[in-house]
Amino acid sequence: MARLSDQILTAIFSLQRHLLEGINETAATELAIFEQFGETEITIPALEQLQNARQRLTDPCSRL
């Protein structure tokens, strides 16, 4: 098996960190909106968009 260079490993871990930070940020924002305003007609679209964004970040993170 070929050994990955340190530069490639550093890039991979950096990308993974950015994805995890994005996942965490979207989850925290979703929770803050839900706790402050609840699930209403106005907040449902925003909450759904945040869930979709988190899923779009989770998929590549799990592949990494």
Score class of each variant (00 low, 15 high):
30 E>K: 13
40 T>V: 05
36 Q>H: 13
30 E>H: 13
42 I>D: 14
32 A>E: 01
21 E>V: 10
46 A>K: 10
30 E>I: 11
5 S>M: 09
1 M>R: 10
33 I>V: 12
12 I>R: 07
54 R>E: 02
16 Q>I: 05
50 L>H: 00
18 H>Y: 07
37 F>S: 15
57 L>H: 06
16 Q>A: 09
54 R>N: 05
56 R>P: 00
59 D>Y: 00
10 T>C: 04
54 R>F: 02
40 T>Y: 09
45 P>D: 01
46 A>D: 03
13 F>S: 00
19 L>C: 14
4 L>T: 11
2 A>W: 05
30 E>Q: 13
45 P>R: 00
21 E>Y: 10
8 I>Q: 11
6 D>L: 08
28 A>K: 08
18 H>E: 13
60 P>H: 04
25 E>P: 00
11 A>F: 05
21 E>I: 14
54 R>C: 02
62 S>L: 15
59 D>L: 02
25 E>F: 02
62 S>G: 15
36 Q>L: 09
26 T>I: 01
9 L>I: 14
12 I>G: 01
7 Q>F: 09
9 L>F: 02
26 T>A: 04
58 T>W: 12
22 G>F: 13
58 T>Q: 15
34 F>L: 13
37 F>L: 15
13 F>E: 03
24 N>I: 04
48 E>S: 11
59 D>A: 07
9 L>S: 06
17 R>H: 10
24 N>Q: 07
20 L>S: 11
29 T>G: 04
52 N>Q: 12
23 I>P: 12
2 A>Y: 09
19 L>I: 10
59 D>K: 01
10 T>E: 04
26 T>N: 02
32 A>D: 03
3 R>E: 08
20 L>A: 13
49 Q>N: 12
24 N>K: 14
13 F>G: 00
5 S>V: 02
48 E>M: 14
3 R>F: 10
40 T>A: 06
41 E>M: 02
26 T>S: 06
50 L>W: 04
57 L>N: 03
8 I>S: 03
50 L>S: 07
58 T>H: 01
52 N>P: 00
44 I>Q: 00
5 S>C: 10
8 I>T: 08
6 D>M: 01
63 R>Y: 11
58 T>S: 05
45 P>H: 08
54 R>W: 06
14 S>F: 01
48 E>A: 15
24 N>F: 00
16 Q>E: 08
52 N>K: 08
24 N>L: 07
16 Q>G: 01
20 L>M: 06
4 L>D: 15
1 M>V: 11
42 I>H: 04
18 H>R: 06
19 L>F: 08
7 Q>L: 09
8 I>L: 15
42 I>F: 03
3 R>Q: 15
3 R>W: 15
22 G>A: 11
64 L>T: 08
24 N>W: 01
45 P>A: 02
13 F>N: 04
15 L>F: 09
39 E>Q: 07
